[in-house]
Write a protein that binds this DNA or RNA. Sequence first.
DNA 1: GCTTGCCTTCGAGCGCGCTCGAAGACCTAG
DNA 2: CTAGGTCTTCGAGCGCGCTCGAAGGCAAGC
Lengths: 176, 176
Amino acid sequence: MATDDLMSRALAALGDDGAPSVEVIQALADPAGTSEPMTIAEAAAHLDVSPHTLRYYERAGLVAVSRDAAGHRVYDADAVRRLVFLTRMRLSGMPVRDLQHYVSLVDAGKQTEPERLDILLEHRDTIRRRIRELTLSLAATEYKIATYGGSTGPDVDSAAAPNVVADDVLDQVHRR
Amino acid sequence: MATDDLMSRALAALGDDGAPSVEVIQALADPAGTSEPMTIAEAAAHLDVSPHTLRYYERAGLVAVSRDAAGHRVYDADAVRRLVFLTRMRLSGMPVRDLQHYVSLVDAGKQTEPERLDILLEHRDTIRRRIRELTLSLAATEYKIATYGGSTGPDVDSAAAPNVVADDVLDQVHRR
DNA sequence: GCTTGCCTTCGAGCGCGCTCGAAGACCTAG
DNA sequence: CTAGGTCTTCGAGCGCGCTCGAAGGCAAGC
């Protein structure tokens, strides 16, 4: 359901605030396995997290990272791919605990794929719910901005009645 | 900007999963100031938080609540209105710290309205950013579901090449 | 009178996700 | 040879937002 429009949606999202289509083409043109092994600093920069966080993820069992002769971490393509996945899931609000569960399933082998799929399906629904919540909160915030006023209670503003009505409606929606 | 379509959007959101328009009409019909003073348990149920949380908000200086003869909290319409605002803002991700700042401005008087408006405008942008992030994460998750595979790294799946390309595209989008 | 139950205050504790600091190994440039 | 920088491990600490527990007050019902 709604899968083959992924690209169009990603591109649409890109189109929102500028014209970074160059990057997209670059990404598309980049051969899949080109990436060289990275140091922790490079990986951190690439993933936009701190080296501390990468060590934390490793300690948490989310990713295995090999060492070079000096004992320094080496992030190869596989590790980076997994970390891209992990950081994206974190960004979308999946708890570290769930990610631990997920990667344990991945490491357990192919027969766990149905369970992994379930996790993703549930997570998808969670994201959708969150987007709906935020969309409503956004509407409420924009309404508040428009009628500004700015009362949160005691001080009744001039347009009190419609404001309260809208609040109640949004309240109903929120508690769905 | 984009303010007068609040109602239509709220209603559209409602229309998504059923036919709860009865509640909307109910909410619209409900006279603004009808609500009776509540106990902490009633207020908590109404706001869908725990009594503990309400006491915490009060301790944090977010809302003033009077007491009855027995020393029990009495949530009047003003307090409830403020708490509706507070819980909605919390739900939309505004930190308690920012809410403390905001209510201190409200309590400081009308001349702080411009600053309050600034806070709301910034928060609106924050929500918008978050929605964009989540929309992308949703697309990525749906893509992963569609191509399932479920690899996060080491085990290369059959459709590896397009998967990686999509990952990289979304990666570019994410780091905008 | 006594139990039940909801309330009060206060301070402490917790789960999450990092984030930091100390102490030391190693490589490279000057 | 030395200084600087980046890395290592380990454990502790922190900011947030609750969440809980202990000890007790008060009102209603049996």
